[in-house]
């Protein structure tokens, strides 16, 4: 679409801008202010300069949490994206089965995040949980409070349970937008299933997958409530992710300065990853559609 150049559009943006700025910029400024001081209360505070940043960047617990965070985010993305595409391809195209599937698939997305943790806690406990008891019956001493591997696997499984539907629904709606004529043409050409997927379905999916991967990366990078309820970050600190480390520091110990410095580093990391991703996608789209899209 050819957009008109008109700076009066700013008036339409203004109400939204004021509200978001109130919620985003004022707190961000405060975080920056915290990060260079040792704050006890508004009157008692000392300027520390860059000390907190230095401490935080060299803190081995935080570095470990950061590595765990990346490992977790990439693991769940690597599982959820292919699985979600697969489910979208398998789903019935129309009829009551299609709407029933849609409703059931959306279910996990609408459950409050800490309730998701509770559901999986109830499901995997060794004494009252179906999965916990079931695995033990099979002869494996499954225990998420003792065994870090079990805890990790369970959290990944929980995240797959929770978020694969998002990818599946996005891809499903992408697939529904492909006109039947494309498939007919493919049938005439005797195209293999793989060729249909690679040259007809996947290109249509890129747009929605971009949204899906971006949302999934951002959310998995901020994951807090689910592992907190399920494992409490344990055993040891094997499932303590960045958000939890930060929340413990900020709320639990009230270390405003260090946690603010850490917040900023955290934010910069997400900003960089998402910017690179966003720019790469926008540029590849620009090459594909020379007449200019959205």
């Amino acid at each position: 679409m050819n957009k008109v150049y008109n700076n009066r559009a700013w008036f339409l943006i203004l109400p939204m801008l004021l509200l978001v700025a109130f919620s985003a910029i004022i707190p961000l400024m405060t975080v920056v202010n915290y990060s260079v001081q040792d704050v006890f209360d508004a009157q008692t505070r000392f300027f520390t300069g860059t000390e907190w940043f230095e401490t935080m960047l060299n803190d081995s617990a935080l570095q470990a949490a950061l590595l765990r965070q990346f490992a977790f985010s990439f693991t769940v993305l690597a599982i959820e994206v292919p699985l979600g595409i697969g489910i979208a391809l398998l789903m019935p195209k129309r009829g009551w089965q299609a709407s029933a599937m849609l409703i059931l698939l959306t279910l996990p997305l609408l459950i409050p995040w800490n309730v998701v943790g509770s559901i999986w806690q109830l499901f995997t406990r060794g004494d009252i949980g179906l999965m916990g008891v079931g695995i033990r019956e099979l002869g494996y001493a499954y225990n998420i409070t003792r065994n870090p591997t079990d805890a990790w696997a369970t959290i990944v499984l929980m995240d797959v349970w929770h978020w694969t539907p998002l990818i599946a629904l996005l891809c499903y709606s992408g697939l529904r937008a492909i006109p039947d004529a494309y498939y007919q043409a493919a049938r005439i050409d005797r195209a293999s299933k793989w060729a249909v997927f690679r040259y007809i379905q996947l290109p249509k999916l890129t747009n929605v997958l971009v949204i899906g991967v971006l949302l999934r990366f951002m959310h998995s990078f901020m994951i807090y409530a689910e592992p907190f309820v399920l494992t409490g970050g344990g055993p040891g600190s094997s499932t303590t992710f960045l958000s939890q480390t930060l929340t413990t520091m900020a709320i639990g110990q009230r270390d405003l300065g260090p946690s603010a410095a850490f917040s900023l580093i955290y934010f910069l990391i997400i900003l960089l990853v998402c910017w690179v991703f966003y720019t790469a996608i926008m540029n590849s789209q620009k090459d594909n559609t020379p007449q200019g899209g959205a």
Binding site: M222, F267, C274
Partner: peptide, 23 residues
């Protein structure tokens, strides 16, 4: 501006907890 809006989706709520409380 559009990208800035998206960055707000990325901001971990944990970052903003204390200032929000204060604000």
């Amino acid at each position: 501006l559009f990208f800035w809006l998206l960055t707000n989706l990325m901001a971990p709520p944990a970052v903003f907890l204390l200032p929000y409380f204060q604000l």
